[in-house]
Simulated scan of single mutants.
Amino acid sequence: MRFKYWRSKKIGEWITINPSPNSFIVMLGESFSVWLNGQLTVVYHHVMMKGNENSYSIRVFASPRAGYLVKVPKELVDDKNPMLFKPFDLEEVLKFYYLQTVQVATKSTIKAYCNV
Score class of each variant (00 low, 15 high):
Arg2Phe: 10
Arg2Asp: 12
Phe3Ser: 09
Phe3Ala: 13
Phe3Cys: 10
Trp6Asp: 14
Trp6Met: 13
Ser8Asp: 15
Lys9Cys: 03
Lys10Arg: 12
Lys10Pro: 02
Ile11Asp: 15
Gly12Leu: 01
Gly12Arg: 06
Glu13Cys: 06
Ile15His: 06
Ile15Gly: 02
Thr16Asn: 10
Pro19Trp: 13
Ser20Cys: 05
Asn22Cys: 04
Ser23Tyr: 02
Phe24Leu: 11
Ile25Cys: 14
Val26Leu: 15
Met27Ser: 14
Leu28Tyr: 02
Glu30Thr: 09
Ser31Ile: 09
Ser33Thr: 15
Val34Pro: 01
Leu36Asn: 13
Gly38Thr: 01
Gln39Glu: 14
Gln39Pro: 03
Leu40Cys: 11
Thr41Arg: 11
Val42Asp: 06
Val42Leu: 12
Tyr44Asp: 14
His45Tyr: 12
His46Leu: 08
Val47Asp: 06
Val47Phe: 05
Met49Phe: 02
Met49Trp: 00
Gly51Gln: 03
Gly51Leu: 00
Gly51Cys: 00
Asn52Arg: 04
Asn54Ser: 06
Asn54Val: 01
Ser55Asp: 04
Ile58Lys: 05
Arg59Ile: 14
Arg59Leu: 12
Val60Phe: 11
Val60Tyr: 09
Phe61Ile: 01
Phe61Glu: 02
Phe61Ala: 05
Ala62Phe: 02
Ser63His: 09
Ser63Glu: 14
Pro64Gly: 01
Pro64Cys: 03
Pro64Leu: 01
Arg65Trp: 01
Ala66Ser: 13
Leu69Glu: 10
Val70Cys: 06
Lys71Arg: 15
Lys71Glu: 15
Lys71Ile: 01
Pro73Gly: 07
Leu76Val: 03
Leu76Arg: 01
Val77Ser: 08
Asp78Phe: 06
Lys80Cys: 06
Asn81His: 15
Asn81Pro: 01
Asn81Thr: 09
Pro82Lys: 12
Pro82Trp: 07
Pro82Arg: 07
Met83Ser: 14
Met83His: 03
Phe85Thr: 05
Leu90Phe: 13
Leu90Glu: 06
Leu90Asp: 00
Glu91Phe: 01
Glu91Cys: 03
Glu92Met: 10
Val93Trp: 02
Val93His: 03
Val93Leu: 08
Leu94Ala: 04
Phe96Asn: 13
Phe96Ile: 11
Phe96Asp: 12
Tyr97Ile: 00
Tyr97Ser: 04
Tyr98Ser: 02
Tyr98Gln: 01
Gln100Val: 00
Val102Asp: 10
Gln103Ser: 12
Gln103Pro: 04
Ala105Gly: 05
Lys107Ile: 07
Ser108Ile: 10
Ile110Tyr: 11
Ala112Asp: 14
Ala112Lys: 09
Tyr113Thr: 09
Cys114Ile: 08
Asn115Phe: 07
Val116Met: 08
